[in-house]
């Protein structure tokens, strides 16, 4: 088994192994969350609920702007909200490595409690297991979220259509670069913070202003490029981004250049991508910008009929580059 950097290797694994094994439409849709209907009857309507689960293995456990606990809450509820659901409950499983400082665990739990309160969800179930020293990086957390999926609301990465606009809620790459710099002990000239945040409020504001939004995604692992490649494949459309329009902090851009990274490939934890019909894009952008988590929102590109399944980036000086979903490892290609 190779490394799972969130790139094509992971996608291949899911497509080849997991989807066929569990063969059902909900899983096969490969959305970030599953929407299912509970049985109704006796005059009780069958409620629609959304479920999402995510495992967190971040190193270090504490980083500027957050910690693994916050991340474990945000990651799962964000997957629910970008699908249009209202997150309600959370369950969490902890795999603790023998020797983990109790103090650290205490801080993580407190941070999770605060994050739940902030996002308006309740943690209702949990489990802990302890593994031998050396078999885990301190703590791994898996969270599962359950939320209500309002009737009639459907957001799906299969619904993008040519002409639609692509919006991003703010600067990209902050989380990934912040984590790398503390983990690897690389000091960039300006300190960076993770952007981890609960996106429920922003999404409510967006859906309020623009109910016609077609799809949303939080570009976590694999970054904007993985999220849009999945969208392009699922909707059988192309996506063309405009280089100059993508918000990137100068310090993130600088760090990416140093590390040989494309900001489009770097993980985010408090950002979302939205696909909107062209006529709604400006109103949506205004609604996003008036929310604190969407201040730097921008229209970064559009959905096109050409090159279905492919994402391209049009540069400022002309010329268009393919934004590919790479295997997940860094493999030089210039020969």
């Amino acid at each position: 088994l190779g490394h799972g950097g969130g790139g094509r290797a992971t996608a291949d694994l899911i497509g080849r192994l997991f989807v066929p094994a569990f063969g059902n439409e909900v899983l096969a849709a490969l959305e970030d969350q599953a929407t299912v209907r509970l049985p109704g009857g006796d005059g009780v309507p069958a409620p629609r609920i959304a479920i999402s689960t995510d495992a967190f293995v971040v190193r270090p456990l504490f980083f500027p702007g957050g910690d693994i606990g916050r991340l474990a809450v945000h990651g799962t509820i964000n997957d629910l909200v970008v699908g249009g659901a209202e997150p309600l409950y959370l369950a969490a499983a902890f795999i603790l490595e023998e020797g983990l400082a109790l103090d650290d665990l205490g801080r993580i739990v407190a941070s999770m409690r605060d994050s739940c309160a902030e996002a308006g969800v309740i943690l209702v179930a949990g489990d802990t297991k302890v593994v031998d020293r050396g078999k885990g990086d301190g703590v791994y957390i898996t969270t599962t979220g359950v939320g209500l999926a309002p009737e009639g609301r459907s957001l799906s990465i299969r619904d993008a259509r040519p002409g639609d606009r692509i919006l991003v809620s703010g600067t990209i790459g902050d989380h990934g670069i912040a984590i790398m710099s503390v983990r690897e002990g690389i000091e960039f000239e300006t300190a960076l913070e993770s952007d981890t945040a609960p996106l429920g409020g922003l999404v409510r504001a967006m859906l309020g202003a623009c109910p016609g939004i077609r799809a949303m995604r939080d570009p976590t692992r694999g970054g904007v490029s993985a999220a849009l490649n999945e969208l392009a494949a699922a909707s059988r459309v192309g996506v063309t981004l405009l280089e100059g329009s993508i918000p990137v902090r100068p310090e993130v851009r600088g760090a990416c250049e140093m590390l040989g990274l494309d900001p489009l490939d770097v993980a985010n934890e408090g950002k979302l991508l939205a696909v909107s019909p062209p006529e709604d894009a400006d109103a949506l952008l205004a609604a996003m910008r008036s929310h604190p988590l969407g201040r730097d929102a921008a229209i970064i590109g559009r959905v096109v009929a050409e090159h279905p399944g492919m994402v391209t980036l049009r540069s400022v000086v002309g010329g268009e580059r393919i934004v590919s979903m790479l295997s997940g490892e860094q493999l030089p290609r210039i020969c």
């Binding site: 250049e257 590390l259 290609r333 210039i334």
Partner: peptide
């Protein structure tokens, strides 16, 4: 090769 392809430039 620090930075991968970046090192080539």
């Amino acid at each position: 090769m620090p930075g991968g392809d970046r090192a080539t430039l």
